[in-house]
Amino acid sequence: MRYIEEQSVMKKMNSRKILNSVFKGIFFVATLIALLTLAVLFYRILSQGLGYLTSDFFTNFASRFPEKAGIKAALIGSLWLMAVVAPVSMILGVGSAIYLEEYAKKNRVNDFIRVNISNLAGVPSVVFGLLGLTIFVRALALGNSILAAGFTMSLLILPVIIVASQEAIRAVPSEVRQASYGMGATKWQTILRVVLPSAIPGILTGSILALSRAIGETAPLVVIGVPVIIQFLPADVMDTFTALPMQIYDWAKRPQADFQNVASAGIIVLMAVLLLMNSVAVLIRNKFQKRY
């Protein structure tokens, strides 16, 4: 008895091979379309914007003359925003994740909380803007300050950070925790010395990706009334400011074609900031990742 009926295998061979190459082609085209779009976008932005990307562009405020327009206020404003968002969202986000994963008991209430945090990640950013407007800007009377905008953005990315941190904490094998308890460590000692050190790459990667989202968001800032026309830098977190996406949007709307190019230069700056943050995330993951 032969295990392989060569005749019948050969009969189907051709159609199998064709099907194989057809699907290979389909997937290749799918990848190509995505890459081409990106390439066209890059080309357009770079060809329009590079000419305006001078050192003056970083040291000037916005101007009615395209050649004098600069991104200083927006860039510094975005950095200030990040300086509020990063600590606030990470402390709250990692804290909630530790509570939910390590302390909270498995019951209906906590399951309900977990499901809702995941749902919150899908809520449109405008809604968070309205929340920020009601609570931080009006009720707490913070005005359109960096602090109010920072809190609003923190709320926006909090669900993402919580979910990412939960995943990272969950990925720490329970044997390691048990070993720590076995050595007589308390829960807090275990979390601080065992769980967090091995979860930190995942937590930081998730957090930085979430922060990248916060730096590119416009809608919540528009809703809480962040101004665009501004000719000074903030001196503390209670000052008002403007941010990169607001400034870019304002330029892109202008009638003069030159301002479209200035907007492109602004987009290059925003993309550079995003790429920088993302590569830091990759770097952290590679440097600190441990395998069990």
Partner: peptide
């Protein structure tokens, strides 16, 4: 307003902010 604020800020310490809602 952008043009006005630009020129005004060059000669004054007053901090003007204008939103575009």
């Amino acid at each position: 307003l952008e043009a006005l604020v630009e020129e005004y800020s060059a000669q004054s310490d007053v901090q003007v902010t204008v939103g575009v809602s």
